[in-house]
Nucleic acid binder design. Structure first.
Length: 466
RNA sequence: GGUGCGGUAGCCAAGUGGUAAGGCCAGAGUCUGCAAAACUCUCAUUCGUCGGUUCGAUUCCGACCCGCACCUCCA
């Protein structure tokens, strides 16, 4: 079976390939930079990263846009409260976000674009909508008239029949003709930041930025539009309404939505005290790749129950994979090739690919890896394993790690160099040979305090960092 | 009320019309100068409840119970 994704639009699993057969044009809803990203946000961005990496492993090139929302009500309120400009206020959180991404080994999309740098494109899009009769003005602001877009609701599968269209409903601080209508351009309020444009002095609504930036960089029809499940309605529904009203073409072929993360079985919230940022977790002593593993290990369409026990389990699981890689690299094997082992590696590779192709079934893919790990360890113990097989195993691990990216430990500052460790290990081996166990144990204890663990195996002593 | 998702071992979590992957924890063992580390083995007659279809259902259908999300800002 080929690569397939669950498309929220059709509510079915569909085979995927890009329009041009080569480059995947993908838009991912990025962060609103008014606070530090929490692990729930990062779950979604980790999903987007896994998606990127698997698309590339499947042979496609990527053209991926991620937006940074750096203007909205909350940002304006917070910035004004601190007497800062929008840019002064958002710069810190944007930088922190990009840093978190790098720490979690999330690849930087080809284009990371700011809303405030695309006001012109948004205004142009609103004007086009206006020319086609999809907008109206009320109290100086511009709104989208949902009644003109009959397909509204096709993504979220909401039935709006129960709502009373045409009734004048007061929502928020603005007057709208229909409760579903949303603001495209907000009239300037005294003292707030604004842009003086042909459609008035004001600022953009939230939804228009994604339509404008997506189409600017990726064209009228995207291959994939991804984001958190909560954005499905109204944000993504509104993006469709805005974009398709202007182009008359499907805005995105595939819509992929990541489920939410919950913490210890409960919705994450500051009041429950279970609200974590990546920094919080690192401060507790967890490695970034541990968090990455945990966030990636549950398939993206399932809720992910984040627990401290789960973080520990992730750390242990990574250790096993690393130990396995170390064994493949360091143990001496016969200079040949065992047919059964070769068959095992190719079968595992096929099953790993099949799991990932199946709508990114990361849990299934991990299951394949651990099964392979156990069977291979047994084969190595039994001597039914050659150097060629070690190479095959490492190739599979490399395929795995191009997507999961957890095998390389995050470098910690300071500590002993590899050379220094190797020298001490050699000294200990010599001491053992001379039956000077006191000195050998001293070195072992010494290295232990420096975070170096020794393993005495039948092939000699090997070491690793904790 | 509408829409959608889910209930699989102590915890996390795949999966299939043919009799339950994997990870963690726990127990046992192998290796070892002693350890540690590592590795191996064991660990759900059972998949929310009750019916139905079927030779056979955890997997399909129906009802019910429970939990959750969205319908307003939210990854």
């Amino acid at each position: 079976m080929a690569l397939r994704f669950y498309n929220s639009l059709s509510q079915h699993l569909e085979p995927f390939s890009p329009q041009d057969g080569r480059t995947v044009r993908m838009y991912c809803c990025g962060p609103t930079v008014y606070h530090y990203a929490h692990i729930g946000n990062l779950r979604t961005f980790t999903f987007q990263d896994i998606l990127r990496r698997w698309l590339r492993s499947s042979g496609f090139a990527l053209d991926n846009v991620m937006n940074i929302t750096d203007v909205d009500d909350k940002i304006i309120r917070a910035a004004m409260g601190q007497g800062k400009t929008l840019q002064e206020y958002t710069a810190e959180y944007e930088a922190a976000f990009l840093e978190d991404m790098a720490t979690l080994r999330l690849e930087r999309p080809e284009h990371v674009v700011r809303a405030t740098e695309h006001i012109g494109e948004m205004v142009e899009l609103i004007q086009q909508l206006g020319a086609k009769g999809f907008t109206y003005e009320s109290d100086g602001s511009t709104y989208y008239r949902i009644a003109r877009f009959p397909e509204y609701g096709k993504l979220s599968h909401n039935d709006f029949g129960g709502m009373i269209a045409g009734a004048r409903v007061d929502v928020d601080e603005y007057d709208k003709d229909d409760a579903r209508d949303f603001v495209l351009w907000k009239q300037k309020k005294e003292g707030e930041p604004s842009w003086d444009t042909p459609i008035g002095d004001g600022r953009p609504g939230w939804h228009i930025e994604c339509s404008a930036m997506a189409m600017k960089y990726l064209g009228s029809t995207l291959d994939i539009h991804a984001g958190g499940i909560d954005l499905q309605f109204p944000h993504h529904e509104n993006e469709i309404a805005q974009s398709e009203a202007v182009t008359g073409k499907p805005f995105a072929r595939f819509w992929l939505h990541a489920e939410h993360l919950i913490v210890e079985g409960q919705k994450m919230s500051k009041s429950l005290g279970n609200f974590y940022t990546l920094r919080d977790l690192l401060a507790l002593g967890y490695a970034p790749e541990t968090v990455r593993y945990l966030l990636a290990s549950v398939p993206y369409r399932n809720k992910l129950n984040f627990t401290m026990e789960g973080v520990k389990a992730a750390a242990t699981a990574i250790d096993r994979l690393r130990n396995f890689e170390l064994r493949l690299r360091s143990e001496r094997f016969a200079d040949d090739k065992n047919a059964a082992a070769t068959e095992r590696a190719s079968a595992a590779t096929a099953r790993f690919r099949e799991a990932m192709d199946d709508d990114l079934n990361t849990a299934g893919a991990l299951g394949v890896m651990f099964e392979f790990l156990r069977d291979t360890n047994s084969a190595m113990d039994a001597g039914q394993f050659g150097i060629e097989n070690a190479y095959e195993g490492l190739v599979l691990l490399a395929l795995f790690d191009r997507v999961f990216d957890v095998l390389r430990p995050t470098a910690t500052a300071g500590g002993l160099s590899d050379e220094a460790v190797a020298a001490l290990v050699a000294e200990r081996v010599a001491a053992k040979k001379a039956r000077n166990f006191a000195r050998a144990d001293e070195i072992r204890a010494d290295l232990d305090t420096q975070g170096i663990v020794l393993e005495d195996t039948k092939d000699g002593t090997r070491w690793k960092r904790k």
